[in-house]
Design a protein around this nucleic acid. Structure first.
Length: 252
DNA sequence: CCGGTTGTTCAGCG
DNA sequence: GCGCTGAACAACCG
């Protein structure tokens, strides 16, 4: 469920509730249903992995974390974390974090950090990366302030595509590689979106969950790497590790 | 049945 | 106050 492109799909699927009023609501997350009933959906938005349902005076933020799910016009046996019924159907959210946001979304969200947004700003992303030269490539891609929406799958596939080892230091990437990293974070996310819609996402994975490098035909490594300790699938042969050399001659 | 996971937050510690 | 670590949360699959 959780990576940015999947939230874009949700936003599209929930589109039929736009401008509709909530007729009934229930929640297991401490939101008073009477706050919701009668509210009209004025916008459905997303910021990375955040799904936002905007009403005139407040918004609801859904985050699916690792296990969250939703169903439109059907329900699971157990009670939903949040259930919204409209005249033309219903939407149910499970195992997710739900928060009421009182502030204006445009003041608290930087849309330019969302790789799926029309306002995505690659120059800003490069600037943030240059400000954190010691960061590992595998952590940088998962940093939601820089690449909002990128998750572990996209991280692994982007690094494989651009042939950068997950343990590379951001500050040691050549400028062209840094640019590729930023560009592919967005490009791969849109590929992910199309493949997911066509139900063929997994078959396009080159590194994630793979045991052999499709370029080199050697074993791929799988390790929990970086501050994030997330699974990193990588090829030690074709993915270049940009690290400070131990020999003084070539060190920076 | 157990182990693993497309993620984040927070308490506790040095 | 900081960075780091581990726990907690949670549902489903194989």
């Amino acid at each position: 469920m959780p990576e940015g492109p999947s939230i874009v799909i949700l936003k599209e699927q929930a589109g039929k509730f736009l401008r509709r009023r909530i007729l009934a609501a229930s929640s297991r997350v401490g939101i008073d249903p009477s706050l919701l009933v009668g509210q009209r959906v004025v916008a459905l938005r997303s910021w990375g992995k955040h799904f936002l349902i905007q009403f005139p005076r407040f918004s609801i933020r859904i985050h699916f974390l690792l296990f969250g799910s939703y169903l439109i016009d059907s329900a699971k046996p157990g009670p939903a974390k949040l259930s919204l019924r409209f005249g033309n159907g219903e939407i149910n959210f499970y195992a997710c974090s739900v928060k009421v946001i009182e502030q204006d979304l445009d003041t608290i969200y930087d849309w330019s950090a969302d790789v799926m947004s029309e306002q995505w700003d690659p120059a800003k992303a490069r600037k943030k990366l240059r400000a954190a030269p010691g960061m590992l490539a595998c952590d940088a891609l998962l940093d939601q302030h820089t690449f909002s929406g990128v998750g572990n799958i996209i991280k692994n596939e982007v690094l494989f595509r651009i042939r950068v080892h997950p343990l590379s230091r951001i500050g040691l990437l050549p400028a062209a590689k840094l640019r590729q990293l930023v560009d592919q974070a967005r490009t791969y996310s849109f590929d992910f979106l199309q493949w997911k819609k066509a139900n063929v996402l997994k078959r396009h994975w080159l590194a994630h969950t793979k045991t052999t490098c499709p370029r080199c035909d050697v074993a791929l490594f799988e390790r929990e790497l970086g501050k994030s300790r997330r699974r990193s699938f990588h090829c030690n042969r074709c993915q270049v590790k940009y690290v400070k050399s131990k020999s003084a001659a070539s060190s920076q």
